[in-house]
Design a protein around this nucleic acid. Structure first.
Lengths: 265, 265
DNA sequence: CAGTGGTCTAGACCACACT
DNA sequence: GTGTGGTCTAGACCACTGC
């Protein structure tokens, strides 16, 4: 394929036999972007599970009838977005939360000295896990209808025995059928890893809105914190593939011995 | 150069005649990394000023005796780090804060609806601008010795007439000789742009530590906020090329009508 | 039109991991 | 050794900008 058609509005033929609904490709985009899109579809469709290797660059090049370099550029972007991890000599793997290397994928809280791992594993205390009808704000964040079933989990995270985070999670009832408090409590490793393994839901990005607030009496009690101590309110929406919101999380962080760290580039 | 020496520990000859102290290149790295390093040196040395175009990929390839593709990969990384901006058909330009496209380069505060620009230009009220001897904590953050001269600026930023941010800036006295309150007040556009234009200091990245705090009486007064309202404490260290810290900034943000927004990938 | 960055290819070789 | 990702090259053509 020596630079034949690609520049004008034609796109790669939808790979047949995959059962994908062949959604119409809107406009022109570079070949490697189209390849990226196709690989993305396979990731979403679960053709390769988190932690598994995807086909080699040569195989993909053959499948899509393009050169290896083009596939490479597509995978480069997927790797830059943390959807995929390259390992020299071994292959390219679907990213997963189930690896201790990336313990706290989205948690930006750090002890004032050292890092979270130096404080040992977090203790998770599940206070509640119930099925409720989504309030308006929760429904809006999760792109549901008000009143739809959602699971609500309330828990306290402690580091080194000190209660540090109080958070509520809301999850679409549809996707998280059967989630129980014991399941939340007993699973070893990141909560997002459990979502992958038990529910096939993989979070790929998140957005946080942060404020300073004064906790109410109940919140102070749960965090064993004196009344009036200001806390960090962190509202996070986490998304799966395709920008579908799959979790709303409202956390209160103690910031007297920890801080929220953000690196700006 | 058909793949001759590059893989073993040899590195590119230091480009002669540039006056650079030819600091010894430590170990092996891919060719494109070495090229990236050389371009970086030129950026640091000020061979091309912010906003200016750097030589074309072909020119750089000729200068460094490598292929255009190798230069391209080097520039790709520099662009990913926001040190350089590519513009198709025009060239590659040294990144600058002096463009309204990137108004608030490091400020993550957003109004609860809309964005900062929708609130019109921020009003800056300079309260103080004085030369002081660096306290221990400031000195540590700026990699100075305790007692070294630093400039301290205190100001209030208002959006739509509402005081929203109270912040103190500390700058190394050495690099910011002659900075005055009127200069801070009169300059149109981003403060970081003024640093570039007037002092030749370009900030390329920053790290922020965030906490919830209760302001003292003086702070409440300055922000015209009731006593006891919790505020976001944002401590930022901004770095120039080579990871040299050049600014410490301690800000207090109102988060009753705004929030700190962070996107996690 | 010429010059710039952007895309695509094809082939070579290197570094690494496994067997 | 074989297979994987990683680097490097050389050459072609496309898309955008400005003269």
């Amino acid at each position: 394929m020596s630079q034949t058609s690609p520049t004008t509005a034609e796109n790669i033929a939808d790979s047949p036999g995959l059962g994908a609904p062949a959604q119409p490709t809107p406009a022109f985009s570079p070949l490697y972007q189209q390849i990226k899109g196709l690989i993305l579809q396979s990731l979403q469709a679960g053709e390769w599970k988190p932690g598994e290797a995807i086909p080699s660059e040569m195989e993909l090049a053959a499948r899509f009838r393009v050169s290896q370099g083009t596939v490479r550029k597509a995978i480069d972007e997927l790797a830059a977005e943390n959807l995929v991890v390259r390992r020299q000599g071994k292959g390219t793997f679907v990213a997963t939360h189930s690896e201790q290397h990336v313990q706290y994928r989205f948690l930006r809280l750090m002890p004032d000295s050292g890092d979270l791992d130096s404080e040992g594993p977090a203790q998770r205390n599940i206070l509640e896990c119930k099925r409720v009808r989504a309030p308006a704000d929760v429904a809006r964040a999760l792109a549901l209808r008000s009143g739809d079933a959602v699971l609500q989990v309330r828990r306290v995270l402690s580091f080194g025995g000190v209660p540090t985070i109080l958070e509520d999670l809301w999850l679409p009832g549809q996707s998280f059928k059967g989630l129980t408090a014991t399941q939340m409590a007993q699973y070893q490793g990141p909560t997002y890893a459990m979502f992958e393994v038990d529910f096939g839901v993989r979070m790929v990005r998140a957005v946080e809105n942060i404020r300073a607030i004064t906790p109410d009496a109940a919140q102070c009690e749960l965090l064993q914190v004196p009344a009036g101590m200001p806390l960090l309110s962190v509202e996070r929406v986490a998304y799966t593939y395709n920008d579908i919101p799959m979790e709303l999380r409202r956390g209160l962080y103690r910031t007297d011995s920890h801080h929220y760290r953000n690196e700006l580039n």
